[in-house]
């Protein structure tokens, strides 16, 4: 189970990375490689060029403003778990990070890699959606930003144009009184989630968001979840959301609703 042949590039800057990407037939970006590596070994992915972003210093940096925290694409789950990344979410980011796969995977797996791969079951997909994060995108023409809710389009599909890549994520700062909840169901510790419920309640900022994730596609976002979770958890409303997204399997529906309910309870709603 060895990969097919590919070339390898190790750019030092994001500009060079963008140029390499633009000039290639079928290039794939390599970050920690914890999702891409298996697909390469299985020969499901057969790029002819691998552009390794992990040696670009700027992608391993963090930036803080009073409104948000910007995390470089190549920051690892373990970095976030260990508190090397300042937390602006009252503990949500490190808590989610510490339950992604396994420590040996988290030491190389990156937040940018996970979001670029866009597996619906990935923790960051649901988490950054509920956090209303912004995705900072780099291309040959420079930088642009899109909200996470518009970034993921479907399984393995994101709103990156040809030649673009994910440079960083911006996570809005919680106010002190903000509460969160996050609950995922896995058949086994560390394996793919079957359902994720995520909730952020931050009345000071006027935020009340909820997400049902680990569907077979993009996470289901309720940007104003006041009605859904404001007066206790409205299971019927959650069920109606699943109807709208054509999730018909009874078992899956039950898991999604329950995950959101448990996240809601954790968020103190």
């Amino acid at each position: 189970m060895k990969p097919g042949p590919f070339d390898y590039a190790r750019p030092a800057t994001v500009e060079r990375a963008a140029a390499l990407l633009a000039g290639s037939g079928f290039a794939k970006l390599l970050s920690g490689g914890q999702s891409l590596g298996p697909m390469l070994n299985l020969r499901l992915a057969r790029p002819d060029l691998l552009v390794d972003l992990t040696h670009i210093a700027s992608l391993k940096e963090i930036r803080e403003t009073k409104d948000f925290l910007e995390i470089g694409a190549c920051v690892t789950h373990a970095n976030i778990e260990d508190g090397l990344v300042p937390d602006c979410t009252n503990g949500m980011l490190p808590s989610v990070a510490s339950n992604i796969a396994y420590r040996a995977v988290r030491n190389r797996g990156t937040i940018g890699g996970s979001l670029s791969h866009a597996d619906p079951a990935a923790d960051w997909v649901s988490t950054l959606t509920v956090l209303d994060a912004e995705i900072v995108i780099r291309g040959a023409k420079g930088q642009r930003r899109v909200p996470m809710a518009n970034y993921m389009l479907g399984t393995f599909e994101v709103a990156l144009e040809e030649g673009e890549f994910l440079e960083a994520v911006r996570v809005p700062r919680f106010s002190k009184s903000a509460r969160w909840g996050y609950y995922k169901f896995c058949r086994k510790a560390g394996e793919f989630a079957e359902a994720i419920g995520a909730v952020v309640r931050d009345p000071e900022r006027g935020v009340c968001r909820a997400v049902m994730g680990a569907t077979h596609s993009t996470p289901i976002l309720v940007a104003d979840a006041t009605a859904l979770i404001g007066q206790g958890f409205d299971a019927a409303a959650a069920g109606a959301l699943l109807d709208r997204h054509e999730i018909t399997d009874a078992y899956e529906r039950q898991l999604h609703v329950e995950a959101l309910r448990r996240a809601t309870v954790q968020a103190g709603a």
């Binding site: 030092a12 390499l20 040696h55 920051v75 690892t76 260990d82």
Partner: peptide, 25 residues
């Protein structure tokens, strides 16, 4: 560890990172 980024990616000083690639699409 104190450095950010994947383990294995921190040994190179940035000026020694090579951007060259022999690649024909």
């Amino acid at each position: 560890p104190e450095k950010l980024g994947p383990v294995g990616s921190q040994g190179l000083a940035s000026e020694t990172v090579t951007a060259d690639v022999k690649h024909e699409p």
